[in-house]
Computed example of a mutant assay.
Amino acid sequence: MAVLQFAKATKLTMKILELENGKTKATRQHGFFILMSGFHLFKRDRTLFPNKIEENGREEARLLGKESAVEAGDSQCDHTPNERRINVVEEVGNPVHPLDEFDVFRLIEAGKLCLPPSTEPQDRCKSDGLAKFLFVVQTLWFIAQFIARKVSKLPLTKLEVITLGYTLLTVAMYIAWWDKPYRVTSPIRVYETLPECTKKQEELKRGMEETGFVSMAIWYAAGAQGGYIDLRSVRGVPLFHSGYIGKEFSDLSSLLTTIIVGTLFGAVHFLAWSSPFPSTHMQFLWRFATIVMTAVPSTTIVITLFGVPIGEYVSKILGALILFSLFLLPPLYFVGRGITIVLALVTLATLPLDAYRDVEWSDFFPHI
């Protein structure tokens, strides 16, 4: 899901640069900002604000119905300095729905919407460079300790092994989400009248109405719910929203990442393959779970891409068997994950004495 969002945000950024012809310095953060409902349609409420304000000892009339590009000022928007000075009362209105990529791009093309400077989404989304730095330092320190214990021939606990696996997953997600804002608590308010729905938006609305709960849950698990959600019909973007990706769901980068990172996560557990266990049954369960977690990610992708089309082409019975095996693989994978977590906690009660020894860092560096 993280890599799919990264790929989609990159495509949106490239499209913005094409529309603006290099006039704006769009970054990948702008692409993420659009996916995260950074632009929200609002309906004006004329009863909340006065239509006159006093400035420099004189009254200047200002119509609240004036069309504006965005709520926040921007150097590229058509606002004069005088208009900005007298706009001391912020227009809020009532939220309607988030804007999808189609509406955002059409408003940009029509000159009715201006992208904010790169510093504004960062400020709105509370992006913290210090938190990123601390995460990197903590992760590198844990990996260094793990390698040092292995080199020093000190036993590794099963809890350390599975933690290393989760660290790899976290690093992969963090790389993909490095430019992603933390969250959008105050979206940019847009007061424009939207054009008619495009064919893709109508397709999204029909898919949202026709897709049942079980099917939608599967699309959520696959990170492809963006192909079945019409943002004009909801109040906020769904969890892990990746934008419109079409019915084919064939983003190669996300599939390759699923195979590579998923396989590496399972392969990490091979480090405890020959480690001592309280019983042979526990060792067998650990090895079984390790093989399952290593093989299932790649097997699932291969069956989805090749097995299902071949099975449907050959015969209905073979196709049904392939689909049945495809539905069995995810539960089997979660069983393997559960086994490793339980064994990691159970084996803490029978750790060898060397497991409590610290790494002698002086053995790795020259010293007097």
Rank of each mutant, 00 (worst) to 15 (best):
W219L: 06
V237W: 01
A217M: 14
K199R: 13
I229E: 02
I229R: 00
L194D: 03
C197L: 12
D251T: 03
G207S: 05
H241Y: 15
A222Y: 05
I259R: 02
E248C: 00
K205C: 11
E209L: 11
R232H: 14
T257L: 08
Y220E: 09
T198H: 03
R235E: 11
I260F: 11
L256G: 13
K247T: 15
I260N: 08
E202N: 09
G262R: 08
K200I: 15
G246T: 10
I218L: 06
D251H: 07
K247N: 13
R235N: 11
L204M: 06
V261R: 02
H241K: 04
T193S: 15
I245F: 04
L194G: 05
I229D: 01
L194Y: 06
L256C: 12
K200L: 10
G246D: 09
E196I: 07
F240M: 03
H241N: 10
A221T: 13
A221P: 07
S242E: 02
G227M: 06
C197I: 03
L252V: 09
S233M: 07
L252I: 13
S250C: 05
G207K: 08
Y220V: 02
E248D: 11
E202C: 06
G212Y: 09
T257V: 08
K199D: 15
C197G: 05
R235S: 10
K199E: 15
L239T: 09
G226K: 02
L194R: 05
Q201T: 03
G243S: 09
I260K: 12
M216P: 04
M216C: 03
I229C: 04
G223C: 07
G207H: 05
L255V: 00
G212A: 13
I218R: 12
S254C: 10
I218E: 06
Y228P: 02
I229M: 02
V234W: 01
G262A: 06
L252D: 09
Y220I: 06
S215W: 11
R206W: 15
D251E: 12
A217W: 14
R235T: 13
E196W: 04
K247P: 08
V214P: 10
A221E: 12
F240I: 02
L204Q: 07
Y228N: 05
G212W: 05
I218H: 07
D230N: 09
P238C: 05
T211V: 08
H241S: 04
T198I: 06
E196T: 13
A221I: 12
K199C: 02
V261H: 02
K199S: 14
G223K: 01
Y228V: 14
E203H: 02
V214L: 15
A222K: 11
G236S: 12
E209S: 13
E248H: 05
S233G: 05
T258W: 13
E202Y: 00
A224D: 11
T193N: 15
S233T: 10
W219I: 00
V234H: 08
K205R: 14
V261K: 01
A222L: 13
C197K: 09
G226H: 02
T257N: 14
K199H: 12
Q201F: 04
Q201S: 09
V261G: 03
E210G: 02
V214R: 07
